[in-house]
């Protein structure tokens, strides 16, 4: 088991440590989300092969109004 932080919330992961599994589990399955791990962008095509480690910080963002 490892512990990660996703959008400021601590999570515990049991078996599948891939970024894709975490996003799917948390309901991030739309086109309008993007992910960064430890402040580095991870393209959608690499979500499946990106394995998370203890202490990783994941940011998931989506569109909002801005100037």
């Amino acid at each position: 088991m490892i512990r990660i932080t996703l959008n400021n919330e601590i999570m515990e992961l049991d078996d599948d440590h891939s970024l894709l599994a975490v996003l799917t589990k948390r309901g991030f399955d739309q086109a309008y989300y993007a992910a960064a791990v430890n402040r580095h962008f991870i393209p959608r095509s690499l979500h499946g092969e990106t394995l998370l480690k203890e202490g990783d910080v994941i940011e998931i963002i989506s569109p909002m109004q801005g100037g």
């Binding site: 400021n8 739309q30 989300y33 989506s62 569109p63 909002m64 801005g66």
Partner: peptide
């Protein structure tokens, strides 16, 4: 038009309405 990005919760469907408008 300019747009921004922010953390959103999938549970609240954050950003979905704005995305559709865009």
């Amino acid at each position: 038009i300019t747009v921004a990005l922010a953390r959103q919760s999938p549970q609240t469907k954050g950003g979905e309405a704005f995305w559709n408008d865009l």
